[in-house]
Simulated assay, not measured.
Amino acid sequence: MTDDRRTVLRGRYLSLGFGELFAAVVFIGVAFISVLPLLERPSDGLAFWSALVPLLAILAQAGVYWLLARRWVKQRTMPRGLASVYRGFRVLDAALLLAGLVGIIVWFPAHPFAAIGIPFVWLLGVIEYVNYFVVRLAYPPSVWFQRIGEWRTPRLMQDVQAAFGS
């Protein structure tokens, strides 16, 4: 692979990394400015955080991954120690999503907006989890329907597998 291709990928990874971290910051901002003030009961807030925390964790992990991946893209494999951390995140994030679902059920909000919005936030976390740890879901809109059926392994998991030679 040429240095030009590596440079292009490093730029793309930089954009993806900052994009995921920025998305997490936006979700936090929207939570404090727009959502939390509307929730009437303390349990509504607990349900909301049950949905949001897993999403924020996955976005932050993904953002850090893309930024770190700039170091090894097209030159070597992901460091084994980091690959082990992301293997752990795969399990931890699934547990966070499950705990978040339990929290949403236990503290299900009474407000109609929250009753719809909170499960939607949790579902975004599930989608991000699947996209990073199970099967690639992110494609440009023009080719999404053509590519989604390929069931490709996400780049993160390719890097984790390559680190262990599998």
Rank of each mutant, 00 (worst) to 15 (best):
V8N: 09
L9D: 14
R10K: 15
R10Q: 15
G11L: 07
R12K: 12
Y13S: 08
Y13D: 14
S15A: 12
G17D: 06
L21Q: 01
F22P: 00
F22W: 08
V25P: 01
G29Y: 13
F32K: 10
F32T: 07
L36P: 07
L36F: 11
L38I: 05
L38H: 13
L39I: 06
E40I: 08
P42G: 07
D44I: 05
G45S: 11
G45A: 09
L46D: 07
L46I: 08
W49M: 09
A51K: 01
L52G: 00
A57F: 14
W66G: 02
R70K: 15
R71T: 11
T77H: 15
R80N: 08
G81V: 11
L82N: 04
S84A: 15
R87G: 03
R90T: 08
A94K: 03
A94M: 08
L96Y: 02
L98Q: 05
A99M: 09
G100D: 06
L101C: 05
V102D: 04
V102H: 07
I104E: 01
I104P: 00
F108D: 06
A110C: 04
H111P: 04
H111K: 13
P112A: 12
V121R: 02
W122R: 01
W122G: 00
L124Q: 04
I127R: 10
Y132N: 08
Y139K: 13
P140A: 14
P141R: 12
S142K: 15
V143S: 13
R147W: 04
G149H: 05
W151M: 12
R152D: 08
R155L: 08
M157I: 12
M157P: 03
Q158H: 06
A163F: 02
